[in-house]
Design a protein around this nucleic acid. Structure first.
Length: 275
DNA sequence: CGCCAGGTGCGAA
DNA sequence: TTCGCACCTGGC
């Protein structure tokens, strides 16, 4: 199937560090594992060439996942209006979208991210999927979907540890138990403002401010929260000579308000690509 | 070997 | 409230 797009850069969007479970193939297409299917997707100019293990409703799934119906042009214009110096980073991020990631997976992914490396996060996610998730055969290859809550409810700490989750095994286990026992509801967050949502997420063991921010930004489309990582710190130091998490947070939010998450993501992408 | 990474929890001050 | 340290794991 072919989907016409504009202002979309598949490669940047997939590889800019939002998601973990994808693979770039020799033909420069990407295999990506979504909630209920595996997709292979390739961009040729303004066309997305899409194949999937499940073509059901595929256009809507793709549009939603890659946030294709959200108005980034107007966001870019606003960012430019706030600071004309943003032109360089906006240009470098043309077509970059905020992926709408499945909630269960995004929370577990970022619990795994703490004091960890990207390849190991990916490996742990793959192991968890292989252990608890459904197998999908697509293009003669085996893939494993990320497990549903019901599938995950069978998990125990020892098996999770064997998935190479490390000391985060108990955090994932506790998180799953809390959902099952109705002590935590990942959909309740929709009705909260971002500050309350951050605090709510941080009641989970293994979820601090950074992880909670990533979850809200990537899983809940909350652009008024944002993680501050080493790339963003570098950008802030080089461009504005601002240091320290709190200073960066205040400076960014004062300036960009509900667009902070996008602004930060652009800075991250710009700085990371430049180095 | 020791160091450290997409941080966080915990106990001590 | 803030501060320092330990923490699975694996690549360098």
């Amino acid at each position: 199937m072919i989907l016409k797009v504009n202002n979309f850069n598949l490669k940047d969007t997939v590889t800019c560090g939002q998601i973990f479970r994808f693979e770039e193939l020799d033909d420069s297409s990407f295999d990506i594992i979504l909630t209920d299917r595996v997709i292979n997707i390739k961009q040729e100019n303004d066309n997305l060439i899409i194949n999937s293990s499940n073509m059901n409703n595929i256009e809507e799934v793709i549009r939603n996942y890659f946030d294709l119906d959200y108005d980034y042009e107007s966001i870019n214009n606003k960012l430019l209006k706030i600071d004309i110096n943003n032109k360089e980073i906006i240009d470098s991020c043309y077509g970059l979208k905020m992926i709408n990631e499945p909630r269960l997976e995004v929370i577990i992914s970022y619990i795994l991210s703490s004091n960890n490396r990207v390849p190991q996060i990916k490996s742990a996610l793959d192991n968890i999927s292989k252990t608890y998730g459904q197998k999908v055969i697509f293009n003669n290859k085996e893939y494993y979907l990320f497990p549903s809550l019901e599938e995950l409810s069978k998990c125990d700490i020892e098996t999770l540890r064997n998935c190479k989750t490390g000391f985060r095994d108990k955090y994932i286990y506790e998180f799953v138990q809390k959902i099952i026992n109705k002590e935590f509801d990942i959909n309740l967050i929709d009705n909260m403002n971002s500050k309350d949502a951050l605090n709510y997420l941080m009641t989970l063991n293994g979820v601090g401010e950074k992880v909670a921010s990533c979850i809200l930004l990537f899983g809940y489309h909350r652009f008024d929260v944002f993680p501050i990582d080493t790339w963003v710190k570098k950008y802030m130091k080089d461009k504005y000579n601002i240091e320290g998490i709190d200073n960066i947070r205040n400076f960014t939010y004062d300036k960009y308000k509900e667009l902070s998450g996008i602004a930060i993501q652009y800075m991250f992408h710009y700085k990371r690509n430049k180095n």
